[in-house]
Design a protein around this nucleic acid. Structure first.
Lengths: 167, 167
DNA sequence: TATTGTTATACTCTATAACTATA
DNA sequence: TATAGTTATAGAGTATAACAATA
């Protein structure tokens, strides 16, 4: 059975007096969870600063990727119920980040559409995402970075496989 | 300014016909976010299966680490208000995972204490955490794993520094 | 005075179920 | 019949503010 908890980070063992010790699998998972936890904390700070919530930013990001989108499609993309999308869109309409436009051919549907403010916000988001990547990994040697990305990719595949087996 | 969003994972660029291309900093951040996202999905599934919520499991994990603990201390450890802890403990008392015991010297305080069921749950948690680490990284070569852990550690330090500078 | 934990109140996100308007 | 989006209702987590008991 697969499972993890991001706060399950346990302290790194101390370095022994004479040199380093080989890291264990637990050290790797803990390192991953530690970085994750820090990224999450930073993300929360960003949301508070911008008077936003994670769910609303997620929706804006999605609509930024796909363009004007029906609420049903957004619900599927975000993995929540259509009812939840109604609430998120209500909030974002009120804050001026999106509008509800009529669907050109299906009169049941509405197309959630970014306003200029919404588009500006998404652009800021994309820019700072790129900036963070550069800050964190911009001066890491090509070979080290390649090895890192490779192992991350393998890890993602393993998690995928474990989750499939558990199902 | 630092910020990230876990769903901000963008698709990996396709491999060129003749060999591989060097990964960019964005690839590294996206890989990290992809793994994080998968770990989170797995975590949600675990919680649902066990009729638990993330916040309550976090509290149990914390009390498992520190032993019987006052709600005030738990609030600080979890980064929430004392009021929020009252609600979490209420739920965990009802589900039989913890009890509220009187503090031996401070009659204002209560000590949140694991029941046998609570202790069993935490033990399961620790076990599956170790199992996941083994599943994901158990057969990765020592040198690869060491390089991975090193870069994760450096990344954590960088995020720390960036967050400090932003404050 | 300060601290611990509570009640009171409110907001966000989420879910299920029933309903309306369309397809 | 099926689908898009809504209203109705409910539960979890979080927060601030006011309050009681205790330090």
């Amino acid at each position: 059975m697969v499972n993890t908890l991001h706060y399950m980070t346990t302290p790194r063992r101390p370095e022994p007096p004479g040199g380093t010790i080989a890291p264990t699998p637990a050290d790797a998972l803990n390192g991953l969870l530690m970085v994750t936890s820090l990224l999450e904390a930073d993300q929360r700070r960003f949301h508070v600063e911008h008077g936003m919530t994670a769910a609303r930013v997620h929706l804006l990001w999605q609509v930024g990727l796909t363009g004007p989108t029906s609420q049903r499609t957004i619900a599927d993309a975000l993995g929540v119920t259509p009812r939840a999308v109604t609430g998120l869109v209500d909030g974002l309409v009120e804050s001026g980040h999106v509008t509800r436009e009529p669907h050109p051919v299906d009169r049941r549907a509405t197309l959630v559409t970014l306003t200029q403010a919404g588009a500006d916000f998404v652009a800021d988001l994309q820019e700072s995402h790129a900036g963070l990547a550069a800050d964190l990994f911009g001066d890491v040697q090509d070979e080290r970075l390649a090895a890192f990305v490779d192992l991350l990719g393998e890890t993602a595949e393993r998690i995928h496989r474990l989750m499939k087996e558990a199902r």
